[in-house]
Simulated assay, not measured.
Amino acid sequence: MPTPYRYVTPVPRKAATGRVAEVYDQLARDFGMARMPLFMTLSPAPDVLASTWAVLRESLLAGQAPRAAKEVVAAGVSLANKCPFCVDAHTVLLHATGEHRLAETVARGETPSDPEHARLFAWATGTATAGQAPPCPPEQAAEHVGTALAFHFINRMVSSLLTGDLLPAGLQRSRLVRGLGGRALARTVRRRLPRGEALPLLRGLPSGRVPAWGAGTPVGTAFAALHATAGEGASLLGGTAREAVVEAVAAWDGAHPALSGGPLSGGPSGALAEVAPAERPAARLALLAALAPYRVTDADVAAWREAGGRSDADLVRLLALGAVIAVWRIEAALAVATP
């Protein structure tokens, strides 16, 4: 039976132990789904798994901002990042909030009729290219910024590691199936979850600086952990390779790279031209995760393995590094505009 997993063998729910089992249990309770492909594909790297779940839970699922509004942000970012898997998932979750017309409007990439949702949708789709404060009350800003940044990270991991199908044979593309899926999740989605319950899952993990936009909130604490754990993937790249990836992302304008030429080119004008050939496969994967994760191919992963890349955990951490470098670039622009 086909699975959505491309390059990683996930830890099965029944075989999970320790931190992975704890995340799976909380995910099933708070998200309403016992087997979420994204989190299962991150399971070989428990630190990345736990910190990714924490930023998602504390931004999207918990807090005081309306869940439907945050789902609009999640779907808008996913549309901008060309992540159909996540667009489909959050269309279903919008249905679960009871906003059926809104769900289908956003799924088509159209502007919502409600002015508040329209402003949030426009903001979300532009977060990679325009640093603007979220159009929401100040007390909800951390949740909206956190949701947008969470999905800039999550979209990159999903596009790198999963197929585009949320359900077998692409059944999620049926409006009927999306509506039924939403109704099945409605009770869980409409619950008000207490904040901070994902933070104990981060015990023992490294933590970076809490971002100013999230100071004093569980969202900020979760992001400090994600920044640190994903950033540890830098150990998988040599110094020249790390610098080349960071510099290419720093120069990125937020748009989708051209299919030929530009930073992803393997030629003399490409971002990795000065990187040693043996290190290029790993650097290319990190750079693809940052700028165009939907262009990660079997050949890219095979070249990395042939150059010495071994474990599924290393692959998850390498891609997480690229994804978080892109998030740093986007976050820096948003932080300038966020009170």
Rank of each mutant, 00 (worst) to 15 (best):
P66I: 01
R57G: 01
V55H: 01
E243F: 06
F85Y: 07
E104F: 03
E331Y: 02
T127N: 01
R329K: 12
R209K: 15
A299Y: 03
V324G: 01
A184K: 11
K82P: 01
G214L: 10
G238L: 13
P46N: 07
A130E: 12
V210F: 10
R305P: 15
S311V: 10
P37H: 06
L60T: 05
T129D: 00
R101C: 00
K14L: 10
R329L: 07
V336M: 11
D25P: 07
V145L: 05
S159C: 15
L120G: 05
L94M: 12
E232S: 15
R19N: 12
T229P: 11
L176Y: 11
P44V: 09
G98I: 03
A142H: 08
D300V: 03
R203I: 00
G204P: 08
G18S: 07
G32N: 04
L259P: 09
E58C: 05
M33P: 01
I154P: 02
L94P: 04
E197T: 14
V73S: 01
A74Q: 04
V189Q: 04
A122K: 02
V275I: 11
P138A: 14
A150F: 03
L199T: 05
A80N: 06
S51N: 07
G262E: 09
S78A: 09
Y24Q: 08
A234I: 06
V316N: 13
L185N: 13
K14C: 00
G261V: 08
V210I: 11
A184F: 09
L94C: 05
W252Y: 09
C83K: 10
M40F: 02
D165I: 11
K70Q: 04
V11L: 12
P200L: 08
A323M: 07
P44I: 07
P263S: 02
P137D: 09
A212C: 00
Q132A: 13
A122G: 02
A141Q: 08
V189A: 06
L171F: 14
W328H: 15
W252H: 10
E22N: 04
H117M: 00
L56R: 00
A28K: 06
W53H: 03
I154C: 14
